[in-house]
Design a protein around this nucleic acid. Structure first.
Lengths: 245, 245
DNA sequence: CGAGTCCTTGAGCTACATCAACGTCCGTGG
DNA sequence: CCACGGACGTTGATGTAGCTCAAGGACTCG
């Protein structure tokens, strides 16, 4: 929970070009710097429970968090995966609508909510950037609705792998290509919660994709994609054009 | 497609307190008024196809539109229901990500995109209001993901009815109460596309809810809710608190 | 009156869930 | 160093919710 990041200053921040502060002028950054602090979480730790009062908003700096909802009887649905530069919280609302949990070890950059809201009304660049990010998130959420509502289990898994592959490639600053390799950041259960499936079905479909030669596995988590085209053919999406964000 | 609305001026607009222009000062409204025009669509007509170049953004003034995605093989998923005051389009993006179709007769208030974007950078109130609306939409989309991913067919139908009941009540400016009545704005097929079901399952579950006394039907479209509490119990949601938006 | 749209209901099938057993890896403590 | 326990993953057997296919009813519009 204490600070462990060596980049405690904005000029040196790994997400400064994508986060909510990306558009800020130096003087705006100075004001932000005054109200910010870092928090760290271990994999598995909760960050916020739905309904909690939130005294901060935040940006993910490193690691991955999940955004999810749970029903009384325990059924849970993940509604978003929060990656570095993604924003947590909602200016203008007091309590959190969803659970936020650290999926991997996680560092977030928190801004005290009250002063952040004030800053938003006085400086245009924060609000502008947040609007852009929120519109992108909304499109992604809507694209995911197609996955949840209409795709088969196999298509769901292929879609998830395609997204992770694409994200992993952009993180490493090269475009996705045949033969690429990455680690699954999620357990089978977390994948199931993201895809609206059971963990057994996830496991079976991953095995099935392996048997079809669409993917290769190295251990439980490491995935090789011999042919991106073959993978994309399994997602059910239009191969050219309309990809999932 | 031509103008048929008698409220062509902003001061007299039925959605002026909720739409993207809700926060505007009189002089900002004047500038908006210069770049706006109305369009009308008949029920069933397309407004925009996914991928189309968009030369305007717009607010729904009266009627209902759907936002949806279709796969190559014809599976379709509705990703949003656009009601009066909801916003269509995305400043800063050129082509539409989803299909927009008029569900009922529809009137929208269009703003030419280029000048609207310019207005957004010069006047703060439009962007602020749009951010608020977009954050609300994002929460709604995420809540709907739980419906699509984890609820049973019966719970899905009950959830949809609960939402429509709530919206209908707020439209008529009273709170939802036992014995309330409303018309379903959607065909069985459109409900199926919204809920990730087939139209047959929708039909069967509506019949089942009727047989259980949760709802009463007057014709195909008119619904009576004898007990809201009973309906809510069928949605699977926490009865107090966390309701679907 | 006929055609089209929307809806309902039945019969059978299948994709995925459920229940259950077991295998692998890894950290902890005897 | 090994034994144990717990987290995570795989696979099999069986059950079932919802899909598919099919027929027919109610209503509307020409």
């Amino acid at each position: 929970m204490d600070v462990a990041l060596d980049t405690k200053e904005c000029w040196n921040c790994p997400i400064k070009h994508q986060a909510v502060c990306a558009r800020c002028e130096p003087d705006e950054l100075t004001r932000l710097e005054e109200i910010k602090y870092y928090r760290n979480y271990d994999a598995g730790q909760p960050v916020i429970w739905a309904g909690d009062h939130m005294e901060f908003v935040a940006s993910v700096v490193t690691g991955i968090a999940s955004l999810s909802q749970t029903m009384e009887d325990g059924r849970t649905q993940m509604v978003g995966l929060l990656l570095p530069s993604d924003f947590i919280g909602r200016p203008g609302r007091d309590s959190a609508p969803f659970d936020v949990v650290a999926v991997s070890d996680l560092t977030i950059c928190c801004f005290r909510k009250k002063p952040f809201e004030e800053l938003m009304t006085t400086t245009p660049h924060i609000g502008q950037r947040l609007l852009e990010m929120t519109l992108d998130e909304l499109d992604s959420a809507r694209e995911w609705m197609l996955v949840l509502g209409r795709k088969t289990a196999r298509e769901k898994i292929a879609s998830l792998l395609a997204i992770i592959a694409r994200r992993d490639a952009t993180l490493k600053k090269h475009s996705p290509k045949d033969g690429m390799t990455f680690d699954l950041p999620l357990t089978r259960e977390a994948m199931a919660d993201y895809l609206g499936l059971t963990l057994e079905t996830v496991s079976r479909q991953i095995s099935a994709l392996r048997k079809s030669g669409i993917i290769e596995l190295d251990g439980k988590r490491r995935v090789v994609i011999p042919s991106l085209e073959k993978l994309m053919n399994e997602t059910g999406d239009d191969v050219d054009g309309g990809l999932i964000a």
